[in-house]
Design a binder for these strands. Structure first.
Length: 376
RNA sequence: GGAGGAGUUCCAGAGCGGUCAAAUGGGACAGACUGUAAAUCUGCUGCCUUACGGCUUCGAUGGUUCGAAUCCAUCCUCCUCCA
């Protein structure tokens, strides 16, 4: 269940109570698509990186090692050694990202596996069954994430189908949770708002899906081609239609600036591959802006990545060393930067929560918004 | 001493008369990355110019030719094999 603690403008401070622990919101969820944060970071590391929630992917884990395998091994928590809350994405994003490898019908989506090309079918029921086997804390409804810009007619048809899929997802989840041998019979379900950049579609979709008394509501289909301003506008459009007593999750977003802007507009939860992927590519986030650790200017720089950071990386290693590790393709460089960026994102959300607790989010926002996004 | 082979832009290495400022790797330098097909991808790497374009390059010097990294001569430097 979700408890709204306080608000400041549209921004919200709350907590999501789950069978696997309570999540303080606003929260960032750390993306471990295949059951691990890419960059050789384990659940044990996450404990030291202020992580509250791990996010894993239905599609990827269904392909490998197979959701039945995970089920046999006791579910994702036991498998990955992460005993906190886990959110599983439904595979809906792969309908977008694997566009060249899939075919959509009312029943569901047929994918060509990105691993070996074999055909796999996933509809709402299949997605719920897989997520039930994975035994995540929160399952996401199976949706279609449409690329922006999208034709109005297509966006409308897709959005309406996603709503029908949500009803089927909910029915299947209820059935699975009632079975005697389900690992997590209290698995929660979040519905997903779609509608591309069209206000009327977004609002109508939200009205439809809020009729189901779900555990949370996500805004999907953003940061997939439209401008940041357009994304913020859609959030502002949808937010008034979202239940106040349920968590709001903006899927796949985003940059530190995106997060500051979205919290301001009433979003409670985020996830994004950016901290981990960018870290693997040598791009680190700091409280004074972002750095590319490949840059020659770090060759003799003995300071930590961020002088204001107390993550394990910044407590021990210099920019010069990390620069060298990247130039030498040593994977330790990636690991150290992934840990730093994950810690940075989780710290950012922690500071946001503190600011909200003290009714000074507006000041915090003004303080951070300019410097946090710049390149240094 | 004798017989061969080679010297190309930061490195390795193609090119063997014009379409060559010179393939391809690597390195260097920079950029991108938003519910992860990503330890990935892109750009750039002689000088001048915003560009068009111009200029100087392929061990050195001289020559043949309308034209040379490519052909010839000499020189320098390296490598292999035989004494």
């Amino acid at each position: 269940m979700f408890r709204l603690i306080k608000t400041e403008g549209a921004a919200r401070r709350g907590e999501l109570i789950t069978p696997h622990g309570t999540v303080q919101t606003p929260a960032f969820m750390n993306v471990a698509t295949c059951g691990a944060i890419k960059g050789a970071v384990s659940a044990l590391d996450l404990k030291n990186l202020k992580c509250q929630v791990q996010l894993c992917n239905t599609y990827h884990l269904h392909l490998r090692p197979g959701d039945e395998t995970v089920r046999t091994l006791g579910g994702l928590q036991k498998f990955t050694k992460w005993d906190g809350p886990i959110l599983t994405d439904s595979g809906g994003f792969q309908v977008f990202s694997l566009a060249k490898l899939r075919n959509i019908t009312e029943k569901g989506v047929t994918f060509a596996s990105h691993i070996d090309g074999h055909r796999i079918f996933m509809g709402p029921e299949e997605s719920m069954q897989i997520q039930s086997n994975l035994a995540s804390t929160i399952a996401m409804a199976f949706d279609e994430c449409v690329k922006n810009p999208a034709e109005y007619d297509y966006a409308k048809a897709s959005c309406e189908r996603t709503v029908r899929w949500l009803y089927r997802s909910k029915a299947e989840m209820d059935r699975l949770n009632s079975l005697p041998d389900t690992i997590n019979p209290k698995q929660m379900l979040f519905g997903i708002n779609q509608g591309s950049t069209y206000e009327d579609l977004r609002v109508e979709c939200m009205k439809q899906i809020r009729k189901l008394d779900l555990d949370g509501y996500a805004i999907g289909g953003l940061a997939v081609g439209e401008s940041a301003e357009s994304m913020y506008h859609i959030i502002e459009t949808v937010e008034p239609e979202m239940p106040k007593d349920k968590p709001r999750y903006l899927m796949g977003v985003g940059t530190p600036v995106n997060i500051l802007e979205s919290v301001k507009r009433g979003v409670d939860m985020f996830d994004c591959v950016m901290p981990s992927r960018n870290a693997r590519h040598g791009h680190v986030f700091t409280w004074s802006g972002c750095r590319n650790m490949f840059n020659a200017k770090y060759k003799l720089d003995e300071l930590p990545l961020d002088t204001e950071c107390d993550c394990p990386t910044c407590q021990n290693f210099s920019r010069a060393y990390i620069h060298h590790l990247f130039k030498s393709s040593e994977m330790l460089g990636m690991r150290l930067c992934v840990m730093h960026n994950i810690y940075f994102y989780n710290s950012l959300l922690e500071k946001i929560r503190q600011a909200l607790d003290e009714n000074r989010y507006s000041d915090f926002y003004n303080e951070q918004i300019l410097k946090i996004g710049q390149r240094i």
